[in-house]
Amino acid sequence: MVKLIGAVLILFAGTMIGFQQASRFAARPRQIRQLIHALQRLETEIGYGYTPLPEAMSNTAIHLPEPIKSMFHEVCRLLAQDNELSFRECWEQAVVKHWPSTAMKSAERSALIRLGTSLGISDRDDQIKHLKLAETQLGAEEEAARDEQARYEKMSRSLGVLVAALVVILIV
Rank of each mutant, 00 (worst) to 15 (best):
S101F: 04
P52E: 01
L119K: 03
Q34N: 14
R114D: 13
Y50M: 13
R124K: 07
Q34C: 08
I113Q: 09
H63Q: 15
E45P: 06
V161W: 01
Q34T: 06
A80S: 15
G6A: 12
Q149Y: 04
L4R: 15
Q127K: 00
R88H: 11
T136H: 11
H98T: 12
M57T: 01
W91T: 05
I128V: 13
E143I: 08
E55N: 12
A94M: 03
R114V: 05
E45C: 14
H98G: 05
V2S: 14
L159N: 03
V96F: 11
M16R: 10
S110A: 14
G120V: 04
V168H: 03
L119C: 02
S110T: 15
R157T: 00
V2H: 12
A150N: 12
L131D: 03
S106Q: 15
P67Y: 04
Q31R: 10
K3Y: 14
E55H: 05
V96R: 15
S101Y: 04
I113G: 05
R24V: 08
G120W: 01
K69A: 02
V75H: 02
D147N: 06
F12I: 13
L162D: 03
T51G: 05
E153A: 00
L11W: 06
M57A: 06
F72L: 12
C76T: 11
R77H: 14
G47L: 04
C90E: 05
V161R: 04
I46H: 02
L4I: 14
V161D: 02
I17T: 12
K105F: 06
R24S: 09
V161Q: 04
Q21C: 10
E84G: 10
V95T: 04
E141K: 07
E43Q: 11
K69T: 01
D125R: 00
A165R: 01
V95Y: 07
A140G: 06
F72H: 11
L85N: 13
E55T: 11
K105V: 04
Y48M: 02
I68W: 04
H73R: 15
V161H: 01
R124G: 00
C90G: 08
E84Q: 14
M1H: 06
A26L: 08
Y48H: 02
R124T: 00
L35Q: 09
S101D: 10
A145F: 05
I62N: 08
